[in-house]
Design a protein around this nucleic acid. Structure first.
Length: 269
DNA sequence: AGTTATACCCGGACGC
DNA sequence: TGCGTCCGGGTATAAC
Protein backbone atom coordinates (compact mmCIF):
# COMPACT_ATOMS: atom_id res chain seq x y z
CA UNK A 1 0.00 0.00 0.00
CA UNK A 2 1.23 3.51 -0.62
CA UNK A 3 4.37 4.22 1.38
CA UNK A 4 6.82 7.11 1.36
CA UNK A 5 8.15 6.72 -2.21
CA UNK A 6 4.63 6.31 -3.64
CA UNK A 7 3.42 9.42 -1.83
CA UNK A 8 6.55 11.34 -2.82
CA UNK A 9 5.90 10.41 -6.46
CA UNK A 10 2.27 11.53 -6.17
CA UNK A 11 3.39 14.75 -4.50
CA UNK A 12 5.91 15.62 -7.20
CA UNK A 13 3.50 14.92 -10.05
CA UNK A 14 0.57 16.68 -8.40
CA UNK A 15 2.70 19.68 -7.55
CA UNK A 16 3.68 20.00 -11.23
CA UNK A 17 0.10 19.62 -12.42
CA UNK A 18 -1.95 21.44 -9.84
CA UNK A 19 0.02 23.97 -7.81
CA UNK A 20 -1.71 27.30 -8.33
CA UNK A 21 -4.89 25.72 -9.68
CA UNK A 22 -8.37 26.52 -8.41
CA UNK A 23 -10.87 23.90 -7.29
CA UNK A 24 -13.92 24.37 -9.48
CA UNK A 25 -16.17 21.64 -8.12
CA UNK A 26 -16.22 18.90 -5.50
CA UNK A 27 -18.01 15.56 -5.51
CA UNK A 28 -18.16 13.41 -2.39
CA UNK A 29 -19.60 9.93 -2.87
CA UNK A 30 -18.60 8.63 0.53
CA UNK A 31 -19.10 11.02 3.40
CA UNK A 32 -16.97 8.94 5.79
CA UNK A 33 -13.89 9.84 3.74
CA UNK A 34 -14.12 13.45 4.88
CA UNK A 35 -14.34 15.08 8.30
CA UNK A 36 -17.31 17.41 7.85
CA UNK A 37 -20.62 17.56 6.07
CA UNK A 38 -20.47 17.43 2.29
CA UNK A 39 -21.99 20.94 2.22
CA UNK A 40 -19.31 22.45 4.49
CA UNK A 41 -16.53 20.57 2.70
CA UNK A 42 -17.76 21.75 -0.69
CA UNK A 43 -18.28 25.33 0.44
CA UNK A 44 -14.75 25.55 1.83
CA UNK A 45 -13.10 24.03 -1.23
CA UNK A 46 -14.94 25.39 -4.25
CA UNK A 47 -13.21 28.54 -5.47
CA UNK A 48 -10.22 27.83 -3.23
CA UNK A 49 -6.79 27.48 -4.76
CA UNK A 50 -4.22 24.71 -4.19
CA UNK A 51 -1.00 26.63 -3.56
CA UNK A 52 1.44 23.87 -2.61
CA UNK A 53 1.51 20.15 -1.99
CA UNK A 54 3.70 18.62 0.72
CA UNK A 55 4.42 15.14 2.01
CA UNK A 56 5.03 14.01 5.58
CA UNK A 57 5.49 10.28 6.06
CA UNK A 58 2.67 8.63 4.13
CA UNK A 59 0.51 11.75 4.26
CA UNK A 60 0.04 14.43 1.63
CA UNK A 61 -0.95 17.97 2.57
CA UNK A 62 -2.64 20.21 0.03
CA UNK A 63 -2.12 23.84 1.09
CA UNK A 64 -5.08 26.02 0.20
CA UNK A 65 -5.05 29.76 -0.48
CA UNK A 66 -7.52 30.23 2.40
CA UNK A 67 -4.92 28.93 4.83
CA UNK A 68 -6.76 25.65 5.39
CA UNK A 69 -5.11 22.30 4.60
CA UNK A 70 -6.40 19.12 2.98
CA UNK A 71 -4.76 16.17 4.71
CA UNK A 72 -4.70 12.93 2.72
CA UNK A 73 -3.87 9.45 3.97
CA UNK A 74 -4.51 6.64 1.47
CA UNK A 75 -4.15 3.83 4.04
CA UNK A 76 -5.04 0.47 2.47
CA UNK A 77 -5.40 0.39 -1.27
CA UNK A 78 -6.07 4.09 -1.69
CA UNK A 79 -5.18 5.49 -5.10
CA UNK A 80 -5.47 8.66 -7.11
CA UNK A 81 -6.19 9.10 -10.79
CA UNK A 82 -6.41 12.26 -12.85
CA UNK A 83 -9.30 12.10 -15.28
CA UNK A 84 -10.01 14.31 -18.25
CA UNK A 85 -13.17 14.52 -20.33
CA UNK A 86 -11.63 12.06 -22.79
CA UNK A 87 -10.03 9.74 -20.28
CA UNK A 88 -12.02 8.37 -17.37
CA UNK A 89 -11.54 5.38 -15.10
CA UNK A 90 -14.19 2.82 -14.25
CA UNK A 91 -13.52 2.51 -10.54
CA UNK A 92 -15.64 3.81 -7.69
CA UNK A 93 -14.45 7.23 -6.67
CA UNK A 94 -15.04 8.36 -3.13
CA UNK A 95 -14.04 11.99 -3.69
CA UNK A 96 -13.50 14.01 -6.87
CA UNK A 97 -11.89 17.46 -7.04
CA UNK A 98 -12.46 19.22 -10.35
CA UNK A 99 -9.55 21.43 -11.29
CA UNK A 100 -8.84 23.28 -14.53
CA UNK A 101 -9.89 20.69 -17.15
CA UNK A 102 -8.83 17.81 -14.89
CA UNK A 103 -10.55 15.78 -12.21
CA UNK A 104 -8.39 14.53 -9.36
CA UNK A 105 -10.16 11.38 -8.24
CA UNK A 106 -9.63 9.47 -5.00
CA UNK A 107 -10.17 5.73 -5.36
CA UNK A 108 -10.25 2.95 -2.78
CA UNK A 109 -10.55 5.23 0.25
CA UNK A 110 -11.76 2.71 2.76
CA UNK A 111 -9.86 3.52 5.90
CA UNK A 112 -8.15 6.32 3.99
CA UNK A 113 -9.35 9.88 4.34
CA UNK A 114 -9.23 13.43 3.04
CA UNK A 115 -9.59 15.81 5.96
CA UNK A 116 -9.99 19.58 5.90
CA UNK A 117 -7.95 20.96 8.78
CA UNK A 118 -6.21 24.06 10.11
CA UNK A 119 -2.41 24.24 10.16
CA UNK A 120 -2.50 23.66 13.90
CA UNK A 121 -4.59 20.51 13.53
CA UNK A 122 -2.22 19.17 10.87
CA UNK A 123 0.74 19.82 13.15
CA UNK A 124 -1.04 17.91 15.91
CA UNK A 125 -1.59 14.97 13.54
CA UNK A 126 2.14 14.95 12.76
CA UNK A 127 3.39 15.54 16.29
CA UNK A 128 4.00 11.87 17.06
CA UNK A 129 5.57 10.96 13.72
CA UNK A 130 9.19 9.90 13.57
CA UNK A 131 11.80 11.65 11.42
CA UNK A 132 11.76 11.86 7.63
CA UNK A 133 14.29 9.23 6.53
CA UNK A 134 15.26 10.87 3.23
CA UNK A 135 16.01 14.30 4.64
CA UNK A 136 19.60 15.41 5.30
CA UNK A 137 18.85 15.61 9.03
CA UNK A 138 18.47 11.83 9.15
CA UNK A 139 22.13 11.24 9.90
CA UNK A 140 23.62 8.05 11.25
CA UNK A 141 23.96 9.72 14.65
CA UNK A 142 20.24 10.56 14.65
CA UNK A 143 19.38 7.00 13.69
CA UNK A 144 21.75 5.54 16.26
CA UNK A 145 20.05 7.54 19.02
CA UNK A 146 16.61 6.42 17.85
CA UNK A 147 17.72 2.81 17.72
CA UNK A 148 19.25 2.84 21.17
CA UNK A 149 17.39 0.55 23.56
CA UNK A 150 15.05 -0.60 20.80
CA UNK A 151 14.40 -4.28 21.35
CA UNK A 152 11.68 -5.02 18.84
CA UNK A 153 12.05 -6.95 15.61
CA UNK A 154 13.33 -5.06 12.56
CA UNK A 155 10.02 -5.73 10.80
CA UNK A 156 7.96 -4.16 13.56
CA UNK A 157 10.30 -1.27 14.21
CA UNK A 158 10.78 -0.21 10.59
CA UNK A 159 7.04 0.04 9.97
CA UNK A 160 6.45 1.94 13.22
CA UNK A 161 5.54 5.49 12.15
CA UNK A 162 6.66 6.84 15.54
CA UNK A 163 10.13 5.42 14.95
CA UNK A 164 10.58 6.57 11.33
CA UNK A 165 7.83 8.09 9.17
CA UNK A 166 6.89 6.59 5.83
CA UNK A 167 8.07 2.97 5.75
CA UNK A 168 5.43 0.28 5.26
CA UNK A 169 5.26 -3.44 4.71
CA UNK A 170 6.96 -3.62 1.32
CA UNK A 171 9.85 -1.24 1.83
CA UNK A 172 10.65 -2.71 5.23
CA UNK A 173 11.33 -6.05 3.54
CA UNK A 174 13.36 -4.43 0.76
CA UNK A 175 15.38 -2.47 3.33
CA UNK A 176 16.13 -5.62 5.36
CA UNK A 177 17.23 -7.38 2.18
CA UNK A 178 19.52 -4.51 1.17
CA UNK A 179 20.99 -4.49 4.67
CA UNK A 180 21.44 -8.29 4.57
CA UNK A 181 19.50 -8.59 7.80
CA UNK A 182 16.57 -10.83 8.70
CA UNK A 183 13.29 -9.01 9.42
CA UNK A 184 13.07 -11.12 12.58
CA UNK A 185 16.33 -9.75 13.97
CA UNK A 186 16.00 -7.56 17.04
CA UNK A 187 17.42 -4.09 16.63
CA UNK A 188 19.51 -4.34 19.79
CA UNK A 189 21.40 -7.38 18.46
CA UNK A 190 22.96 -5.41 15.57
CA UNK A 191 26.60 -4.43 15.75
CA UNK A 192 27.72 -0.98 14.64
CA UNK A 193 28.54 -2.06 11.10
CA UNK A 194 25.12 -3.65 10.68
CA UNK A 195 23.40 -0.59 12.12
CA UNK A 196 25.26 1.59 9.63
CA UNK A 197 24.26 -0.69 6.80
CA UNK A 198 20.64 -0.59 7.95
CA UNK A 199 20.76 3.21 8.06
CA UNK A 200 22.20 3.54 4.57
CA UNK A 201 19.79 0.88 3.23
CA UNK A 202 16.79 2.83 4.54
CA UNK A 203 17.95 5.83 2.54
CA UNK A 204 19.06 4.02 -0.61
CA UNK A 205 15.98 1.79 -0.90
CA UNK A 206 13.56 4.67 -0.39
CA UNK A 207 15.51 6.83 -2.86
CA UNK A 208 15.44 4.00 -5.38
CA UNK A 209 11.70 3.68 -4.84
CA UNK A 210 11.29 7.38 -5.59
CA UNK A 211 13.60 7.25 -8.60
CA UNK A 212 11.45 4.54 -10.19
CA UNK A 213 8.12 6.12 -9.26
CA UNK A 214 7.10 3.70 -6.50
CA UNK A 215 5.18 0.46 -6.99
CA UNK A 216 1.58 1.65 -7.49
CA UNK A 217 0.34 -0.21 -10.56
CA UNK A 218 -2.14 2.44 -11.66
CA UNK A 219 -0.57 5.40 -13.47
CA UNK A 220 -1.63 8.77 -12.05
CA UNK A 221 -2.82 9.93 -15.46
CA UNK A 222 -2.89 8.72 -19.04
CA UNK A 223 0.67 8.72 -20.38
CA UNK A 224 2.27 8.76 -16.93
CA UNK A 225 5.52 6.85 -17.50
CA UNK A 226 6.90 7.35 -14.00
CA UNK A 227 4.43 5.84 -11.54
CA UNK A 228 4.88 2.14 -10.79
CA UNK A 229 8.41 1.48 -12.04
CA UNK A 230 9.66 0.16 -8.71
CA UNK A 231 7.50 -2.97 -8.81
CA UNK A 232 9.99 -4.80 -11.04
CA UNK A 233 12.91 -3.56 -8.96
CA UNK A 234 11.74 -5.27 -5.79
CA UNK A 235 14.17 -7.97 -4.72
CA UNK A 236 12.05 -9.91 -2.25
CA UNK A 237 8.53 -8.56 -1.84
CA UNK A 238 5.97 -10.81 -3.56
CA UNK A 239 8.86 -12.95 -4.86
CA UNK A 240 8.23 -16.08 -2.85
CA UNK A 241 9.83 -19.09 -4.56
CA UNK A 242 12.02 -17.00 -6.85
CA UNK A 243 15.81 -17.03 -6.73
CA UNK A 244 17.59 -14.51 -4.57
CA UNK A 245 19.37 -12.01 -6.83
CA UNK A 246 22.33 -11.99 -4.45
CA UNK A 247 22.95 -15.65 -3.59
CA UNK A 248 20.57 -17.71 -5.72
CA UNK A 249 18.78 -19.24 -2.75
CA UNK A 250 14.97 -19.28 -2.61
CA UNK A 251 13.02 -16.27 -1.36
CA UNK A 252 10.64 -17.31 1.40
CA UNK A 253 7.43 -15.83 2.73
CA UNK A 254 6.67 -15.91 6.42
CA UNK A 255 4.34 -14.15 8.79
CA UNK A 256 6.32 -11.88 11.13
CA UNK A 257 4.38 -9.95 13.78
CA UNK A 258 1.22 -10.78 11.83
CA UNK A 259 2.61 -9.17 8.68
CA UNK A 260 3.32 -10.75 5.32
CA UNK A 261 7.11 -10.81 5.13
CA UNK A 262 9.56 -11.87 2.39
CA UNK A 263 13.26 -12.52 2.77
CA UNK A 264 16.19 -14.71 1.78
CA UNK A 265 16.92 -17.08 4.64
CA UNK A 266 20.42 -17.71 3.28
CA UNK A 267 22.09 -14.32 2.81
CA UNK A 268 20.05 -12.27 5.27
CA UNK A 269 21.36 -13.00 8.76
C1' DA B 1 8.50 -1.37 26.47
C1' DG B 2 7.19 -5.02 23.54
C1' DT B 3 3.83 -8.08 21.90
C1' DT B 4 -0.65 -9.53 20.58
C1' DA B 5 -5.52 -9.01 19.57
C1' DT B 6 -9.09 -6.34 17.71
C1' DA B 7 -11.78 -2.96 15.23
C1' DC B 8 -12.12 -0.11 11.50
C1' DC B 9 -13.74 -0.57 6.11
C1' DC B 10 -15.57 -2.25 1.47
C1' DG B 11 -14.06 -2.81 -3.55
C1' DG B 12 -12.81 -6.22 -6.15
C1' DA B 13 -11.31 -10.75 -6.86
C1' DC B 14 -12.93 -15.19 -6.88
C1' DG B 15 -16.07 -19.19 -6.76
C1' DC B 16 -20.06 -21.32 -8.19
C1' DT C 1 -23.69 -12.79 -16.55
C1' DG C 2 -24.91 -12.60 -11.69
C1' DC C 3 -24.83 -13.21 -7.07
C1' DG C 4 -22.64 -14.27 -2.63
C1' DT C 5 -18.40 -14.53 0.11
C1' DC C 6 -14.18 -13.08 1.86
C1' DC C 7 -9.59 -10.86 1.98
C1' DG C 8 -6.21 -7.20 2.55
C1' DG C 9 -3.62 -4.37 5.48
C1' DG C 10 -2.14 0.84 8.19
C1' DT C 11 -3.30 2.61 12.41
C1' DA C 12 -5.16 3.26 17.04
C1' DT C 13 -6.17 1.26 21.15
C1' DA C 14 -6.41 -1.99 24.87
C1' DA C 15 -4.83 -5.80 27.53
C1' DC C 16 -1.16 -8.53 29.21
Amino acid sequence: MPELPEMETYKNLLQLKFAGHTIKAVEVNREKSINSSVADFTEELVGNKITQIHRRGKHLVFDLASGKKLLLHLMLGGLMYIETDKDTISRSKQVILSLTSHRLTFIGLRLGYLHLLTLKEVEEEFAELGPEPIEPGFSFETFQKLAENKKGKLKTTLVDQHFIAGIGNRYSDEICFAAELLPTRSLNTLDNTQLQKLHSSIQSVLQEGIRYGGYIDLPLFKGDQLTGGFEEKCRVYNREGESCVRCGSVIVKKEVSSRKTFFCANCQI
